[in-house]
């Protein structure tokens, strides 16, 4: 079973819910797919056994073979290649590594080389198998890094995916293929707005979802009214608590220090297991 934890809005408590759930369940595979700003390792403190380079294939242009026909630049959808009468220019930061330029070149002038876009750290924290992605700064291909990470998923296990914020391509890469998605939000206008956007994206992707309402006692009841109206399940509510905030600030999982929340997390996971069984 693959369960992703996402939010739309950043800073609502995705990682808090994800790492505490992982620690409670113990025997899970955990993927930190927020590859731009990964934080789960701060809390799970895994020992990293292996670091792999994540690479994509990028074109290399041999100017001695190139006849400047322009087929590659014609095929490239990202304007990453400019062909002049006697020269060719490649704009690396526009390239998505799709490979079409190599394929269409009739002269064999375009070959491919591996380019590092980030790293994938694998390790363990107790029984948790931890996989963390880390995109190199200045890179744009985070979706490719997430895709590479997800090839390491062991479908026989319970898999938790900590997703990046937002509702665009990286979010899609992270949650795609999940059996269930936990959306974490808060009862403020920002939280409501972004929760609805993420919910719309999940409906398009046909992934069932429910809401964890964090800092549930701040703000107003708008999000609860919307959930009641749209028949969206509220899986759990976590009140605002300075002690949770303090533990978060020092990188500790609050479930360990505040066991009164364990039953809530257990009940939430049972609900999700029931739903995904159907």
């Amino acid at each position: 079973m693959i369960v992703s934890i996402a939010s739309g809005k950043g800073g609502t408590g995705k990682t808090t819910v994800a790492v505490n759930l992982a620690a409670l369940l113990g025997d899970v595979q955990f993927l930190d797919c927020d590859v731009e700003e990964p934080n789960a390792h701060i809390f799970l403190k895994p020992s990293i056994g292996k670091t792999d380079l994540a690479t994509v294939l990028f074109p290399y242009f041999d100017k001695t073979k190139c006849v400047f026909c322009g087929k590659c630049s014609g095929a490239c959808q990202y304007n990453a290649i400019a062909v002049l009468p006697a020269n060719i220019a490649f704009f690396e930061h526009m390239c998505h590594g799709c490979g079409v330029c190599t394929y269409v070149c009739p002269e064999g002038a375009v070959t491919e080389r591996e380019k590092e876009i980030g790293r994938i750290l694998s390790g363990s924290a107790g029984k948790i198998n931890f996989i963390g992605g880390r995109m190199n700064s200045g890179e744009i291909l985070s979706a490719m890094l997430i895709k590479t990470m997800k090839e390491l998923i062991d479908p026989s296990r319970t898999v938790l995916i900590d997703a990046p914020p937002g509702t665009s391509c990286q979010f899609v890469s992270a949650v795609h293929g999940s059996d269930y998605c936990i959306l974490v939000s808060e009862p403020t206008p920002f939280g409501v707005n972004d929760f609805l956007l993420a919910a719309e994206a999940l409906e398009k992707l046909k992934i069932p979802y429910g809401l964890v309402l964090n800092r549930a006692d701040i703000g107003n009841d708008e999000i609860r009214d919307i959930c009641a109206r749209k028949n969206i399940r509220i899986l759990m509510e976590i009140p605002f608590d300075m002690e949770i905030a303090r533990l978060y600030s020092v990188g500790e999982m609050f479930l360990e220090k505040m066991p009164q929340y364990k039953e809530k997390f257990k009940a939430m996971f049972e609900i999700i297991s029931e739903i995904t069984k159907k």
């Binding site: 731009e36 700003e37 934080n39 990286q170 978060y248 600030s249 990188g251």
Partner: peptide
Amino acid sequence: PPGIGCPVMASLTGADTALIVTEPTLS
């Protein structure tokens, strides 16, 4: 936007000043 990827780079293009808002948590 949050993050450090393509949307952030597009946002920063041409900026005179980037103001980074952070909070005193390890994350």
